[in-house]
């Protein structure tokens, strides 16, 4: 387990003060409007005058255009999250870390996809977000791994170890990456609400709610995709326990019946956030993240990364969980796919 057991009491005051101060430096709505009218070069210059200066200078010689902006944002994000983990003590560290492990999951999947598609090390490296709990050393070793088996061995002592080892057999059998990626996802999501206090106080309860809705979103997306793609994959294999929305037993029938699934979503606590669009059907359902609750997008959704909240929009994605498969090597970002 890579988790550091952090001693001491939670230092909420200190961490909150620092985070608030940093949040105040994010681009606000006016900046956003300005950015909308700019080209990539101008955006880069604009960022250079803001908090992102250090990252832009460091990366300026190696990248340009969109790549530069994206990498600078990635690196900035990673720095901030690293700082967060460095500041936090005690239970607070655990709360932050359990959410940031999504970057570990993200990095693991990116490395796996890179190996699967024979991408070169450079291409994989730029898509990593070094924000999770994995040390730089571990990430470097992952990058230098020559085979998927090696990656699985390297991660043996982490929370992804056992699930990956189990999924590896299936990967060998069918040489599909999906079982491995699914294993990583499940390990992350199931660890998300694992071991939280049983009777949390009000503040902790809100965080637990947030994590549970995170699981719900993932379940909903998987269900919508499976339903849309009409594959005969077993939905239960993609079901993640711990959410509030679905039970494992019902997901199979819901995936088989799109209308029922949509109706179910409308009745759910998230129903108020759903926006009916003219075209009814799956594409008419827009699963929106609760912006106020999140304020930040997950790694794969690109563009949301400056800390600017962006609407999650699942509309028009025809994908199924299979879309998580790697893009052909060379053709830029593996990060185009969802995590």
């Amino acid at each position: 387990m890579s988790a550091r057991t952090s001693a001491g009491e939670s230092n909420y005051e200190y961490v909150t003060a620092r985070v608030r101060s940093r949040r105040a430096k994010l681009f606000d709505e006016d900046d956003y409007r300005k950015l909308l009218r700019m080209g990539t070069g101008e955006i880069a210059r604009f960022m250079e005058e803001s908090d992102y200066e250090a990252e832009l200078n460091a990366l300026g010689s190696r990248h340009s255009g969109v790549d530069l902006i994206e990498n600078a944002l990635h690196r900035n994000l990673a720095n901030h999250f690293d700082d967060l983990l460095r500041f936090a003590d005690g239970a607070l560290y655990d709360y932050i870390a359990r959410y940031l492990r999504q970057f570990d999951a993200w990095n693991t999947k990116t490395v796996l996809r890179g190996l699967y598609s024979d991408a070169d090390r450079e291409a994989v490296e730029v898509d990593l977000i070094r924000a999770g709990e994995f040390s730089d050393d571990r990430i470097d070793r992952l990058l230098s791994a020559g085979s998927i088996e090696e990656v699985v061995t390297l991660l043996e002592d982490t929370r992804f170890g056992d699930p990956l080892a189990d999924a590896y057999d299936e990967y060998e059998e069918r040489s599909l990456l999906v079982p491995l990626e699914n294993a990583v996802d499940r390990a992350f999501y199931e660890g998300l609400v694992d071991g939280l206090p049983n009777e949390p106080d009000r503040a902790t309860q809100q965080y637990v709610d947030f994590l549970e809705s995170e699981i719900d979103f993932r379940n909903v997306r998987n269900a919508l995709r499976l339903s849309r793609s009409g594959t005969d994959m077993d939905p239960a294999a993609y079901y993640i326990a711990g959410g509030r929305l679905f039970e494992e037993s019902e997901i199979r029938s819901l995936v088989g019946n799109t209308d029922e699934l949509v109706a179910r979503l409308r009745e759910s606590p998230y129903g108020d956030e759903l926006e009916p669009l003219p075209a009814v059907g799956l594409s008419g359902v827009r699963v929106r993240a609760r912006e106020d609750a999140r304020g930040r997008e997950r790694p794969g959704d690109r563009a949301g990364q400056g800390g600017r909240p962006r609407r999650r929009n699942d509309r028009g994605r025809t994908g199924d969980p299979m879309t998580d498969r790697p893009k052909p090597a060379g053709t830029q970002p593996l990060s185009m796919g969802e995590p």
Binding site: E13, Y14, V15, T16, A17, R20, S21, F87
Partner: peptide, 8 residues
């Protein structure tokens, strides 16, 4: 207060 102040 001190912890928050140092953070700020």
């Amino acid at each position: 207060i001190g912890a928050a102040a140092v953070g700020a």
